[in-house]
Amino acid sequence: MKIRLLSLILCLYSISSFSSNFYQIPVIIIDTTEAERNSIVQDSVETDVVNYWDEKNAVGLDFSEVAFINWSSGGNNSVSALIHGDFERNYKKELTNWRNSAIIRYGINAQEGREIRKTEDELVISSSFGSRRDSTSNWYYSAKMDFNTQFTNGYRYPDTENPISKFMAPGYLFLGVGAEFSHPNEDLTAYFSPITQKSTFVLDQRLANEGMFGVTPAVRDEDGNLIEKGEKVRTEFGMLLTSKFSKEIFENVNLRNRLSLYSDYLNKFGNIDVDWQVNVNLKVNDFIKANVGSQIRYDDDVKYKEDIDGDGELETTGPRIQFKQTLGIGVVYEF
Score class of each variant (00 low, 15 high):
298 Y>A: 02
322 Q>F: 11
116 I>Y: 04
334 E>P: 00
162 N>L: 08
10 L>N: 06
127 S>Y: 00
116 I>H: 03
215 V>C: 03
185 N>V: 07
244 K>M: 09
192 F>A: 08
301 D>V: 10
123 L>F: 07
14 S>N: 04
3 I>G: 08
28 I>A: 13
50 V>G: 05
25 I>E: 04
175 L>M: 04
19 S>H: 12
82 L>R: 15
184 P>S: 08
67 A>G: 11
96 T>K: 09
328 G>E: 01
16 S>C: 09
298 Y>H: 05
15 I>V: 13
81 A>C: 08
13 Y>L: 12
101 S>A: 14
171 G>K: 00
333 Y>C: 02
178 G>N: 08
251 E>C: 03
42 Q>R: 11
311 D>E: 02
310 G>N: 00
116 I>A: 10
147 F>L: 03
322 Q>M: 03
331 V>D: 00
104 I>G: 00
132 R>L: 03
196 T>G: 03
304 Y>E: 11
176 G>I: 04
283 K>A: 14
282 L>P: 00
33 T>D: 06
87 F>A: 14
317 T>N: 06
289 K>Q: 15
110 A>F: 06
313 E>C: 03
181 F>V: 03
203 L>N: 05
327 L>M: 07
3 I>E: 14
46 E>L: 05
290 A>L: 13
196 T>N: 01
257 N>G: 12
297 R>P: 07
224 G>K: 05
6 L>M: 13
96 T>I: 15
240 L>T: 02
264 D>P: 12
18 F>D: 06
318 G>I: 10
219 V>P: 00
311 D>L: 05
64 S>H: 03
108 I>T: 14
333 Y>T: 05
144 K>I: 13
164 I>G: 10
225 N>I: 03
60 G>E: 01
21 N>C: 01
220 R>F: 03
242 T>A: 12
158 P>H: 09
207 L>R: 00
74 G>D: 09
104 I>V: 15
75 G>D: 06
325 Q>K: 02
132 R>G: 09
266 L>W: 14
180 E>V: 07
261 L>H: 12
235 T>F: 12
256 R>L: 11
210 E>Q: 14
81 A>I: 15
208 A>V: 06
264 D>W: 10
326 T>W: 00
72 S>K: 14
270 G>Y: 10
47 T>S: 11
213 F>Y: 15
270 G>W: 07
24 Q>I: 09
53 W>R: 10
12 L>A: 11
332 V>E: 07
132 R>T: 06
153 N>T: 10
189 T>M: 06
202 V>G: 02
335 F>W: 04
175 L>W: 02
